[in-house]
Amino acid sequence: EDALLPAPQNISILSTNMKHFLTWSPVIVQGETVRYSVEFQGEYEREYTNESWLPIPECSLIPGTVCDISEDISAPVAYSLRVRAHSGARRSPWGAMQGLFNRSTTSLTPPLMKVIADGYHLLVELEDMGPAFQFCVLYWKKGQERRVQQKVVTEVRSAAHLDTMEAGADYCVRAQTYVEVINKSSSFSQTQCVRAQGDKSMWL
């Protein structure tokens, strides 16, 4: 009787900025509510515990077709994922994701960034993307593109101080995200430029 309920299909992972979502196509059964359960398996489980699977309680008997698996994809190894459908007392066979998933394949986006000139001080406000994220910030004085400075910013609670600026000069900044656990960076953000306070008298 169980076999009548088809296994979920098109199981895949959408992964951006270390947030990994498992998705699948819905199983349609006329007049019935179908629910789904998800399990994962790391390389350790495949090699050392007879290919055992671990359930994800947050995605047990859920009505939707998306599951946030970020919390469990938490080691630098390849993971397998599977989903099955439930309808009443009936359960489908497991539908397995094609291939394995390694978190290093996540796509990283450049950070949202706001550059501030506060007097002679160059600062940057960066979005909080989570504890795994650092930011590589490049800055230079306009016209001196060959003398780029770099700073790694890990704390994003408020404006991070980059450097002091020469009076009246324009400074440009761009940044990329860096995730140490996968040793991977995003592309750079758009460049933003600001001008330092122009009080020339400071330099006499």
Binding site: G42, E47, Y48, L54, P57, D72, S74, A75, P76
Partner: peptide
């Protein structure tokens, strides 16, 4: 730890088991 310990640490607690899996897979790497 990889060969002898983690595989004998299964508990009745799903949350604990998931954390052990995370550590075990990190150790394996």
């Amino acid at each position: 730890y990889v060969d002898k310990v983690f595989k004998h640490c299964k508990t009745e607690d799903s949350y604990v088991n998931r954390k052990i899996s995370s550590i075990a897979n990190s150790f394996l790497s």
